[in-house]
Amino acid sequence: MKRALFWIGLLALLVLVLFPIYWVVATSLKTVKDAFAQPPVFLFEPTFANYAKVLQNSVFLRGFFNSLLVSITASVIAVAVGALAAYGLVQQNAGKRRAHEKFILGLRIAPALIFVVPTYYLAVRVGMLNSHALLIAVYAFVNIPFAISMMITFFEDIPHELRDAARVDGAKEFRIFWSVILPLARGGLVATLILCVLFTWNEFFIALVLSGRDTQTLPVTITSFLTFQGIEWGPLTAAATLIMLPMVVLGLLVQGNVVRGMTLGSVKG
């Protein structure tokens, strides 16, 4: 009896969590008639017409490409730089480290508004607006502090003795980092990279202001679906599904690390 109650409660929880997502995905597979039927229909013949429409939309495809390019490039840069800095920081004494970590955390906390407007000005002056380089640079910049914090936690898990042993053997610092420590932190590198991609892919505010015609990322693209043709929920939900799906897959790949990463502060701007 108690057992049954537990399962009912669990089911209720999962319905609350998953129903909105299910409903969006279901709507994306419905015809207009089914989508707005009252009472709502739960059994329907799925159609991929909405997906066909979205995938034929060149603006959406370009957005997808931009999101992919920007989030992956920016994340690779952030992780590379972040790993270096984190390795250096882990070797310092506690007092120094604490001060530096505090500073890094402080960087992550500012609302995006404060740097987006000056950045826009600057980008216009040097003619970088509407270039992928601008978005990549900005996202790398906001991701670096996160990558540092995240990589620190992984480097800390690596026993000090390894580094000490390598030093006794006379290895140069960069060599120790490259051939001893980094291979051991491979899992951490991948997790950090995936999280950076996830944050960048999902980010909206910076992209809203700093992206141009050719560099618009998906979250911005989808808002243009909202204003141009009226709210066509069919294609819109299909687009929404296509936007979130890759991230859900990636996120589930690094499950445990998502919470760890977000605890270190999100880079949501």
Partner: peptide
């Protein structure tokens, strides 16, 4: 269950907004 609980967290916030608007 844990994996499923993770889904809303990693959803694109813009999509979350659209979902609830819907």
């Amino acid at each position: 269950v844990r994996a499923l609980l993770l889904v809303p967290i990693i959803m694109t916030p813009v999509v979350v907004g659209l979902t609830w608007r819907f």
